[in-house]
Every structure is written in structure tokens, then in C-alpha cells.
Nucleic acid binder design. Structure first.
Lengths: 331, 331
DNA sequence: CTGAAAGCGCTAACAG
DNA sequence: CTGTTAGCGCTTTCAG
């Protein structure tokens, strides 16, 4: 790896001049500029991002951190793609930190990101009281949250109207004539889970459907929780005739249980999921679902972050994107 | 962010000594060691990984690059999780570079990784003639390939026996009585695609089934290609009675087409996929598929890479893991 | 056992 | 327009 020194020597100039042509920071004699460019090409010189980052603390190190709770969830993968596309276009690279819903792992990753001198962070915090992420924004690191906000702190957030999305889903179920609508929810510590549950309850109420506590069950938003909680609901003496599942993985798990029990969708039990998937049409019947624009969430978050890096004192923005009910065949 | 200097000053020692206790590099008086540890705690000192990386070129910067062709493919997500778990355990962080099958993007990422002074790279190269990845291993960077090897170069590779896996799948179909077995393949530029096709042809031959070129179609391994090529096959005057799909995304796409045409699986058309999914049981009927141990592939690759970083001249290993036919209900 | 000092590759004053 | 120099935070001789 050629260094700036090598280039300078080869071009017969000082490293400062090389740095100047590299950054267009001040005008350089055209002739020497050409000489330097030539040397750069000949040596295949590539500036070291590490040295740059070390040197210009707070400057553009072109490194972003992304902190997500579960990379197995296709929703986050799509968010990631959105972030990545924006990052790529702006010459940023991202360090992906998947903490698998493990707060210890999250803490460790956050330490590392700090120590890597990232320019900014996009995070879906473990909870809205996440002390570690809070501290990072208090320390002045540009942060934007996705999917989940942070209590008592003003940060950029990009999310979806979870309450309204859930309401739309359950309302649709109610209007379609389902009377016993169950909900497999995620942990109430996660804001979006609570919001979705709220939408569920609200839709029940507005449609004069009774809320039966035995039809509302909580899990940790994994595939396994979907399998088991669907099992539990469907084993009830009076099981739900429709299921509203709180996220992607739960939906998939519930589907496994339904098929295993040889239940027909939607005749025996209907299902509607929060979170659409790119391949919802590959399911049989095709899944009706609340679609979050995951890729777009990622993009917006990426844009906001880069903005904030450039202008750290811009007022925080909460960007609420619209969810959309994708009606297909499962209810 | 406190620096080593701050710690040294607070403890009343030199930075060299601080560095020593941090790295256990040589013995330090127990008393001063304690003093330093105390100062570290008080200042919440965290070593800068950036500075460390800059300083000790070739030393442990604790940064790995991962280059994958398509993060939308669940297979790579699982590989990623495997890598990440191993990396995490060894105090490494990974930079994920998803090049979306775009060679220009791949080149750009490789430049960046080089410039980030990564300690090693795990890559699923665009092709087995991938010049850029080849160059990186020739330059002495520790590299391990997953899923795909590199022509004419000795590198660590972790993959699966693609030929045998495909053979098992198609052989199963043949033994089950299907006579017109079609194959939706990936691009032949990708080694694993060729190998899977070879297995397909071999199984046909060994079962005395005719090979009909119209039943073998190629696409770029995306969901869309699955949708369209399945459409094409099923529109044939004599369509296949079974489909062997070349990867995850193709399978999902083909499923969409099958359902859209209201075809019954397996009566109207059977399907068997290469690449299993964690939620194959959520499909209706559950999908029969060739399972690659994706997570394990990632783990092994991670381990091999860390080994190689520690011992750069260890002889390259080609690790072939076994695929497994998961028989479920789709054929 | 400990400190001084060089240097990794780069940027940003400061001179000239 | 260009060169010199200090220093980002750290590791690593080399002395002592």
C-alpha cells in the first residue's frame, strides 16, 4: 500500500501538496497537480481511511454504525439495505452490529463503535430507555433511531405509525366478520409492540368486539414464540377465529403451527401480519399484512444521519412513514 | 473520550506503562498496575481501535470485512450470523459489504476495505475469476471464500457439496415418479450454479430420464427470475411435473407463480428447492429442500479466517460441508 | 520495572 | 502556490 509519502517523493513535492490536490483544499499549480495525479495513478495510491479518521476527529471518517436487534428479521434486513444504499452513495461504509436482542452484546458493540470513532449511528435501541444509546447522543454523536424512539430525549426518529397500522389490520378483520380476534404480541418493553397492541385494542373497541385477555399473548418476537403462542391460542377451548401477529417472525411461526394442525386459512383461522415480506405471495394463501416501507425507512434514516453529521445542531425530526394494509388471501 | 495520555497523567506514569498494562506486554510493578487500572476506571478509558490499527499495521486491528453478493438472500444472512458470532467472540467487528451482484459496487467496496486496513476478508466473490478478490489474497491479505472458490489460486474455502446436494434432490424426485423435472438455475458464471446444474443432469441420466433443454432455464438468482422462469416453464406445451429451483429466492418466486396459477403442490407440480429456509414449515405445503448449513458455513469461515490471521502461512483448506435433503410436503 | 522517543498516514495551521 | 511542522492515540524499541 503506497502512502502519501511515496506519492510525494515520486512527484517531487511535499506531502502537504499531495493532500491539497486530494482534497481540493487550496489551489495548486496545474502542472504540479498533474504530476501528482500521475504519481497517484502509477502507485495506485489509495488514501488510508484509518489515518484520516484518527487525524480529523469529528471530521469525515466515512464510517457509520448500525445497531439492530435481530438480523434474522427480514424487516431489519430491508432497513439495512436502505441505509446501505444511501451510505454507499455518500462514500460511507457501515459497521453492522446485530445484538440479537441481547443487551450485553449491545453494550459491547456500542463500546466498540465508540472506539472505532464512527461518524454517526443508526440504531433500533433495545428499549426506549436504552441508557447506552442515550449516552451516545448526549455525548454529541449524531444518532438517528429507527423503529423505536428514545424516552425523554430529542433524537431523529424514523418509524411508522404502528398504532394506525395495527388498527387498520384488526379493523379489517372485524369488518370482515371475525369475532374472536387474537393477538400475538412482542415484548411490551418494545415501544412498537405496545403501540401495535394499542391499535389492536382500539379496533376491537370501535367495532364493539369484546376484549378477551386470554386471546392476547406476549412473546419475544421470534419465530419460536410465534409457533408456541399460536399453539397456545389455538388450543384454547374457544380459540380465536383470526390472528393478528405482531411481527414477521411471529407470523411465520404461527403459520407453521396452523399448517401443522391442518387448519385451513382463512376458513378455520384467518391471519394478518404486521410486517409484510417481499415474498408474501409465495405463501399459500398469500398473506394479508401491514406493510412497513422498510427499505424506505432505512433510506430516510441514512439521509437524516448524513444531514445531521453535516449540521449537528439541526433540530431533531420525527419522521412517521405510512404503513399500508396489503390485502391478500389470508383473511 | 479519554486518551491514554489522560490515563498516564492521572496515574502519574508514562503512556508506555499504561500501554503495557493494557496489553500485558511486559511485567509492571503491581502497585503501579493498580494505580493505572484505577485511573482507567475513573476516566472510563477506552482504547482507540483506530489508533491501534494505524500504528500496528498487520497487527490486530480487530476489523474484518465481509463481502456478499446479496443480502436479500436468507442464505447469506445466516452465513453472516455465523461469521458475526465468531467475530464477536474474538473481539472482532465486521464491515458488511453487500454488492448486490454489481461488480462495480464490489470493486468500490474492496477499495474501501483495503483503505480501512482490515485484518482479513470473508468473501463470496462475484465469480471464480474475480480479479479483485484474487489480488487481495495475492497481496497477502488473509482471505477465506464462502460458497464460491477462486480459480487458479489457493485459498481457504468453505462450501457445500453442491453437486451432491442437487443430485440428491433430483434423484429423490425421479424415484418419487416424476418424469419431467425442470430446473431453474442461476447464472452459469457462478460456480455453485454450474455444480447444481451438473448434479441435476447427472441425476436425470442415472435415472434414465431424458434431458430436455427446454426444461432447463437460467436467471440471475433473484426472486423475480424465479417468478418469470417458473411462468415460462409452466407455460410450455408439455410443462415439467416437478421443479428443482436453484436457490432460495428462485424458490420463493416460483412459489408465487405456482400459487397464482392455482396449481396444487405436489399434484399439479412438485417443487424442491436448493437452500432450505428457517421457515420452510411455514409454507403450504412445507417445502422439501436441500439444506446448506449456512450458519455453520459462516462459523467455519470465521474460524478459518482468524486462524489464518494468526498464522498467515498455514496451508489453505477447502472445507466441504454436507448438505442434507429435508423431505417435507412439496413433492 | 519504567520512561523517552520514533513513527503509523494523514490534515491543518503557519511560514515563506 | 508550496513546504515545514505539530499532532491525532497508540505500540515498540532503546535506554536507563
Amino acid at each position: 500500500m503506497a502512502s502519501m509519502n511515496d506519492v510525494a517523493r515520486r512527484a517531487g513535492v511535499s506531502i502537504a501538496t499531495v493532500s491539497r490536490v486530494l482534497n481540493n483544499s487550496s489551489s495548486v499549480n496545474e502542472e504540479t497537480r498533474l504530476k501528482i495525479l500521475k504519481a497517484i495513478k502509477e502507485l495506485k495510491y489509495q488514501p488510508s481511511r484509518v489515518a484520516k479518521r484518527l487525524r480529523s476527529k469529528g471530521g469525515p471518517g466515512n464510517l457509520l454504525g448500525v445497531l439492530i436487534p435481530d438480523i434474522q428479521n427480514p424487516f431489519y434486513v430491508d432497513v439495512l439495505r436502505g441505509i446501505e444504499d444511501i451510505a454507499y452513495k455518500n462514500n460511507y461504509v457501515i459497521i453492522v452490529c446485530n445484538f440479537s436482542q441481547d443487551e450485553k452484546k449491545e453494550a459491547m458493540y456500542l463500546d466498540i463503535l465508540e472506539s472505532e470513532a464512527i461518524d454517526g449511528l443508526i440504531a433500533a435501541p433495545a428499549s426506549e430507555d436504552d441508557v447506552r444509546v442515550k449516552k451516545m447522543v448526549q455525548n454529541g454523536l449524531p444518532v438517528v433511531c429507527v423503529d423505536r424512539g428514545l424516552n425523554g430525549i430529542d433524537v431523529d426518529v424514523v418509524w411508522v405509525n404502528n398504532d394506525a397500522g395495527a388498527f387498520a389490520a384488526v379493523d379489517y378483520l372485524a369488518k370482515a366478520g371475525y369475532k374472536r380476534i387474537g393477538h400475538i404480541a412482542g415484548l411490551p418493553t418494545i415501544p412498537s409492540s405496545r403501540l401495535r397492541e394499542a391499535g389492536y385494542r382500539r379496533a376491537l373497541a370501535e367495532n364493539n368486539l369484546p376484549f378477551d385477555p386470554q386471546w392476547l399473548v406476549y412473546g419475544n418476537s421470534t419465530y419460536k414464540s410465534g409457533v408456541e403462542l399460536a399453539e397456545k391460542l389455538l388450543s384454547l377451548p374457544t380459540p380465536p377465529d383470526a390472528l393478528f401477529t405482531g411481527n414477521n417472525l411471529i407470523t411465520l411461526g404461527a403459520l407453521e403451527t396452523i399448517h401443522k394442525r391442518k387448519l385451513h386459512i382463512p376458513n378455520d383461522v384467518a391471519i394478518i401480519g404486521f410486517d409484510d415480506m417481499n415474498w408474501s405471495n409465495s405463501l399459500n394463501p398469500p398473506l394479508t399484512a401491514v406493510r412497513q416501507p422498510a427499505y424506505e425507512i432505512g433510506q430516510r434514516a441514512g439521509e437524516l444521519l448524513i444531514q445531521r453529521i453535516r449540521d449537528p445542531k439541526r433540530a431533531p425530526i420525527q419522521m412517521t412513514l405510512n404503513s399500508e394494509l396489503m390485502v391478500r388471501g389470508s383473511c
